[in-house]
């Protein structure tokens, strides 16, 4: 087997260490700044995993995944702010609402395939972005973003001293999504998802309805994205139309390719690395790190998208499978040494 026998204990150990670090005396993770960065990164890791379920496992190239993330975020915020709903109940309703939205939009989009499917989902995503950014209906506060009413959230999520609890919330969501994705992809439905990706015709010959399983995959990943969106609302304190933009879906695609699709941990790692890099590179560029370089080199280097885009091109061209793909290739070589 390609899997290293200690990989699961290692994963658990890493998670436990990450959970303890903010409370364990003086270390980088005991500072609120890094905790916030990591909380966002964990959530993007989880979101990348839900995209991997769609793109990697089921083979559906969607450009509208951000819609469901933003839907979870905004429905939660609107329910808490305008209707004074308890935040847990608000998240539950947001997830159910988003699932229904995914049934409708996914059901329509799945009448097409391939690039056309990508374009229809892009259209739905853009429609959602327009609704949020232009504030049709007067709920979303348009381009300014929608701050969640802090008085109606539990006290331990409010204030800089409590960033560590936001960090734990994000880590908890990541673990929950990881196990859910694991359970889905190892279930018999998950096997059908993979079969659909590899040979759709064969699946229908076996008497299974391909579209029903594609829709299941679509709705499950949308529902998980909605939950992550609600968590992002609490972690970042407000919703913003940029979370609904096509840029987010493209970033998710980059994360999955960077970490490597179809391995679960690859997508999570890709999401975390991408998120941390884009935050940290922005911080670097605001400082003086690139000032000593001439502008024609230092200017682009100060843009995270330049470095990330370059890495991305190199991975697609020379290292398909990303980080996890490279790992498994190396391990395959190691195991076959001497044979």
């Amino acid at each position: 087997m390609l899997r290293w026998k200690y990989s699961r204990p290692l994963l658990i150990a890493i998670t436990v260490i990450f959970a303890i670090l903010p409370f364990a005396g003086d270390n980088p993770l005991s500072k609120a700044g890094l905790q916030q960065t990591m909380a966002v990164a964990f959530l993007f890791g989880a979101l990348a995993l839900t995209y991997d379920l769609l793109f990697g496992f089921t083979g559906l190239l969607s450009f509208g995944h951000a819609l469901y993330f933003a839907s979870g975020m905004y429905v939660t915020a609107i329910l808490i702010n305008d209707f004074n709903v308890n935040f847990l109940l608000a998240i539950l309703i947001a997830v159910i609402f988003t699932s229904l939205l995914a049934v409708l939009t996914g059901g329509a989009a799945l009448r097409t395939t391939g690039i056309t499917f990508a374009m229809v989902t892009l259209a739905f995503g853009q429609a959602g972005h327009v609704v949020i950014a232009r504030d049709f209906g007067g709920f979303t506060n348009g381009d300014d973003g929608l701050p969640v009413n802090a008085d109606r959230l539990p006290d331990f999520f409010i204030g800089v001293v409590n960033t560590k609890y936001l960090y734990l919330l994000a880590l908890g969501i990541l673990v929950f999504i990881y196990f859910t994705a694991w359970w889905i992809t190892e279930s018999s439905a998950g096997r059908v998802f993979a079969a659909l990706r590899d040979n759709e015709q064969r699946v229908s010959v076996l008497g299974l309805n391909p579209n029903r399983f594609k829709l299941l995959s679509f709705v499950l990943s949308a529902a998980m994205a909605a939950l992550i969106g609600a968590a992002m609302l609490i972690v970042s304190g407000s919703g913003s139309p940029r979370y609904a933009a096509a840029d987010i879906t493209i970033a998710l695609l980059l994360m999955v390719i960077l970490g490597g699709p179809v391995t679960r941990w690859g997508a999570v790692l890709g999401g975390i690395i991408y998120s941390v890099l884009s935050t940290r590179l922005t911080v670097l560029s605001d400082g003086t790190a690139f000032d000593s370089l001439p502008n024609f080199i230092g200017g682009p280097l100060a843009e995270p998208a330049f470095t990330l885009g370059l890495i991305f091109i190199l991975i697609v061209m020379f290292a398909p499978g990303g980080i996890s793909g490279a790992y498994y290739r190396a391990r395959f070589k190691y195991l076959n040494k001497g044979k």
Partner: peptide, 8 residues
């Protein structure tokens, strides 16, 4: 890869 080019 064209996504990457456009980012860069």
């Amino acid at each position: 890869v064209t996504v990457g080019v456009s980012l860069v």
